[in-house]
Every structure is written in structure tokens, then in C-alpha cells.
Simulated assay, not measured.
Amino acid sequence: MNKQKITVIITSVVVIIGFVIATFLYNSNQDAKDSLIAKEKESLFVRAHSPQMGPADAPVQLVEFMDPECESCRVFYSFVKHLMKKYEGKIQLTIRYVPFHGNSKFAIAILESARKQGKYWETLEILFEKQPLWGNHHKPSPELIWNYLPMVGVDVDQVKKDYKDPAYTKLIEQDFADARELGVKATPTFFINGKPLRNFGYEQLEAQIKEHL
């Protein structure tokens, strides 16, 4: 092997090593930055009104900023359910609202009203299941939601009395304000133990959860 080839090989190796080191330092710095933000803004992730599933002392605190009319939230819902079952007892899920779509506030008010009947998660599931019908972006029909509530044992007449409660408007405004402060610009947005999901995707979400287990 001549000197020129050796020089090329050495140069390539040095470049690769340099890239690896730079990537490691970047990730370390980003992780430190995320940890600092998580500590400084700890109060913004969970509010007293936030719906939660899973044990409070779970090693993974998963916060999802979501919109019930968001198609991506619907798709991710099944995967989040899968993770909650796969790592049962190790994840606490907290739901926060970011109503970016036109009928989201209506759906959230119904969700919260159903919650008073102990039917929050069942209602969330049926809303996502039927979302292509009531939340169709070309021809939304939010009034269809009333037809779905009996399917999960919700007292519709009671919800119709409760869903206009101004407390729900304040709840939504608080979640929206926290979302803005945390830099949430799309749904779903996930935070794992106060740190944002670094790369969006199913596998990436599970991988980052596993880092904390």
C-alpha cells in the first residue's frame, strides 16, 4: 500500500472519529440543556386538572400535549396504549390539551364532562375511533359525537348540561399557555421526564422511554 492510500485512510478515520466525538458532545450538551429546562419549567408539565393514567411513582412520567381532532394524535393513541401495557406500572401518562383544530374545544369539553362520570378514557378512545367521521377536515360533523357517547356508557343528557361549564374554558386556556411556554407547536408533542422527544416517531418514543427504565 503506497503512502497516498495510507494518508487517505488515516484522514478518513480521523474524520469519522471527529464526527463521532462531535455528535457525542452535541447530544451530551443537548441532554444537559433539556435537563435544565425540565427542572426550571417543572410546574408547566402537569396541572391539578390534568387527566392521568398509571402510578404516580412510575419511573417514567410521559406528558402528551394532544388535540382530540388531530389525526396524528389518533394514530399515536394506539401506540401509547401499547407502551402503557408493555411497560405496565412503569409509566404514568398525563394528557394536556392543545386545541389547534376548529372543533377541538367542543370535544375537550365533552371529554371533561364525561370525566365527571368516570368515563374519561373510554370517551377519549371512542372519540379517536370515530374521529374520521366527526372530525373530517373537509366536512367536520362534531354533532355526531353525541351518538357515540352511549357506546361507552356515558349519560348524554348529563353531559349536555355540563359541557358548557366555563371551568373547561379556563382549563383549556391554562394548557394552551403552558404549551406555548414549553415551545409546543404541533400535536402530539411528548415529554419524557420533562425532556422533549428528541426525534418524532414510534420507535424513537419507545427508545427514549427505555432510557429512563
Rank of each mutant, 00 (worst) to 15 (best):
I6T: 14
T7K: 12
I10T: 07
V13I: 08
V14K: 02
V15H: 03
F19Q: 00
A22Q: 00
A22R: 01
T23C: 00
L25N: 04
L25M: 12
S28C: 05
S28P: 11
N29L: 02
N29A: 07
D31Q: 12
D31V: 05
K33D: 13
S35P: 10
L36M: 12
I37A: 05
I37E: 07
A38F: 00
A38H: 09
E40G: 07
K41L: 01
E42Y: 07
F45L: 07
H49E: 11
P51A: 01
Q52D: 09
M53C: 02
G54M: 01
G54S: 02
P55T: 11
P55N: 05
P55C: 08
D57L: 00
D57T: 08
A58V: 12
A58L: 10
P59W: 02
L62Q: 00
L62C: 01
V63I: 06
E64D: 01
M66D: 08
M66F: 06
D67W: 09
S72Y: 04
S72T: 13
R74N: 14
F76I: 06
Y77T: 01
V80A: 01
H82Y: 15
H82A: 11
L83N: 02
L83M: 09
M84K: 09
K86Y: 03
E88A: 03
E88R: 00
I91H: 13
Q92I: 14
L93T: 02
T94S: 14
H101R: 15
S104W: 02
F106M: 12
A109C: 05
A109N: 15
E112P: 10
A114H: 07
R115F: 06
Y120V: 03
Y120P: 01
W121Y: 01
E125Q: 05
L127R: 09
L127G: 01
F128L: 13
E129Q: 03
K130N: 12
L133N: 05
W134A: 03
N136G: 09
H137M: 04
H137G: 01
H137F: 14
K139Y: 08
P140E: 15
P140M: 13
S141H: 13
L144P: 02
I145T: 11
N147D: 13
Y148M: 02
L149V: 09
M151W: 10
M151T: 08
M151N: 05
M151K: 15
M151D: 07
V152S: 05
V154T: 08
D157L: 14
Q158S: 13
Q158C: 03
Y163F: 15
K164E: 07
D165L: 06
D165S: 11
Y168L: 03
K170A: 15
L171K: 05
L171I: 06
I172W: 08
I172C: 12
D175N: 04
D175A: 10
F176C: 14
A177D: 13
D178A: 09
R180H: 15
E181Q: 14
E181D: 06
L182W: 07
G183Q: 04
G183W: 00
K185L: 04
A186S: 14
A186K: 13
T187M: 11
T187S: 10
T189E: 15
N193Q: 12
G194L: 10
P196C: 03
L197S: 14
N199M: 14
F200G: 12
F200P: 08
G201F: 13
E203Q: 02
E203T: 13
L205G: 02
E206P: 06
E206C: 14
